[in-house]
Design a protein around this nucleic acid. Sequence first.
DNA 1: CAGTGTCAAGGTGGA
DNA 2: TCCACCTTGACACTG
Length: 301
Amino acid sequence: MKIGYPCMNRRIGCSSAKTFRLSSYSEHRLITTVGSNLACLLRILRFNVEHGIRFFRITSDLVPFASHPACAFAWQEHFGDSFKEIGRYIQHHGIRISMHPDQFTLVNALDERIFCQSVKELSYHAEVLDLLCLDASAKIQVHVGGVYGDKDASLMRFAGRYAKLDGLIRRRLVVENDERLYGLADCLRLHDETGIPVLFDVFHHAIFNRGETIPEAIDRASRTWKETDGLPLVDFSLQKPGARAGQHAQTIDVKAFLEFLEESRPFDLDIMLEIKDKEKSVIKAVRAAAKDPRFVRSNKE
DNA sequence: CAGTGTCAAGGTGGA
DNA sequence: TCCACCTTGACACTG
């Protein structure tokens, strides 16, 4: 089991998600920004290793406008050595990596142009992971997408499109249950149609479900992952107390997290904590799991 | 220089 | 048909 956090570290004072306005795009600006983002990414990974954290989601903003027509620069070659160096560090320390394109990436879009743009965005994500020389366990997670007035047809459109995606994308793509439109049952159906692994989001499931218990849900989602996909990935977060349903908590409730670990046994998972204070909560969670006698064994790795 | 409106991109759902 | 919301940091303009 590895416990990780997404994209940003609050402690070390740099960001690997620096960007700029499209209106101020220039090759020089791109080179400066990407160089600084990559340097920061390596710093974050080093921080993580020093704190026993071996799971991290790389931000989609690593290369701003990578899939936009404005970006004609061959950043892949220009920064090839930096990517290799970071990739070696990741492999040497056994770090699990994931990425999560944002809401504009819609495999099941009705509009063919939006689908094409989404493929470009997915290619960019796959390229980053390929340049890092990571195996197929480095995943790209997306939601099923829109309903477009016909949920069934839209789910099947995802299935049809998925089958035709470039293998470099398909080997990394996993689908995550959302909190409103496509729940765990829908994702499992998509898996039956396509073989795509299902990333289980515990928090979304708490908001939107068909009554499946956590152990049932973990069991079903885990079975959709093959050996080459690595350990099943899970997103974990908690409701911010007193806030509107769906808001992520500021910091982790360690007791609730340990309860989840207990419920998820005997499955071994890599768990992404989507909690606002990021690495701080992960450090707490890692520590708590390490000293809880119930999890000492599974946490040894 | 601090405060704040806005940013490449889409979809949903309420008014 | 229009607009707030999703979720979020950070850019870049305003006073």
